[in-house]
Amino acid sequence: MTDWNGLSKDYEFVLFDNFIAAFRDKYFWQSVWFTLKYVAVMVAVANTAALALAVAIESRRRGRGVYRTIFYMPNMISMVIGGYMWMFIFTKVLYYMADNWGMKFLDHSWIGDPRYSFAAIIIVASWATVGYLMIIYMAALQGVPKDLLESAELAGANSRQCFFRVTLPLILPAVTICVFWTLNSGFQVFDVIYALTGGGPGRATQSVAMNIYEEAFRGNIRYGYATAKSTILFVIVLIITLIQLRVMKSREAEL
Rank of each mutant, 00 (worst) to 15 (best):
V43D: 05
S159H: 07
R165A: 09
M210S: 04
F105A: 13
N184I: 10
S185A: 13
S230Q: 08
Y137R: 05
F234P: 02
W127N: 06
M103D: 10
M42W: 05
L149Y: 03
Q142P: 05
T167I: 08
Y194H: 15
N47L: 07
F28I: 02
L94K: 00
P169H: 02
L106P: 03
V41H: 01
K249M: 12
W33C: 04
T167G: 07
A50H: 05
V192I: 14
K229W: 02
L7E: 15
A40Y: 00
I221Q: 01
S185P: 07
T231L: 09
Y72W: 11
M1N: 12
S31V: 04
A52E: 09
A22H: 01
Q188P: 07
L53C: 13
T176C: 10
P201C: 06
T182G: 04
T69N: 15
M97I: 15
L245D: 03
A226R: 00
V93N: 01
R246E: 09
L170M: 01
G112W: 06
M79A: 14
D99M: 13
S8E: 02
R218I: 14
T176R: 06
K9T: 13
W101I: 14
S207G: 06
A119L: 11
T129P: 03
A204S: 13
S159E: 14
W181D: 15
L106T: 08
I70M: 11
G131S: 05
A49L: 15
I240T: 04
A21D: 08
G82K: 03
V175P: 00
I111M: 11
M138L: 11
A52H: 10
M73P: 09
L172D: 11
M76F: 13
A40D: 03
R60W: 12
E12M: 14
M248A: 11
A155P: 07
M103N: 03
Y116N: 10
N100G: 12
Q206H: 09
V39M: 10
E252I: 15
P169D: 01
G102F: 11
I212S: 09
K229T: 00
A125W: 02
S151H: 14
F105G: 13
R115N: 15
A228Y: 01
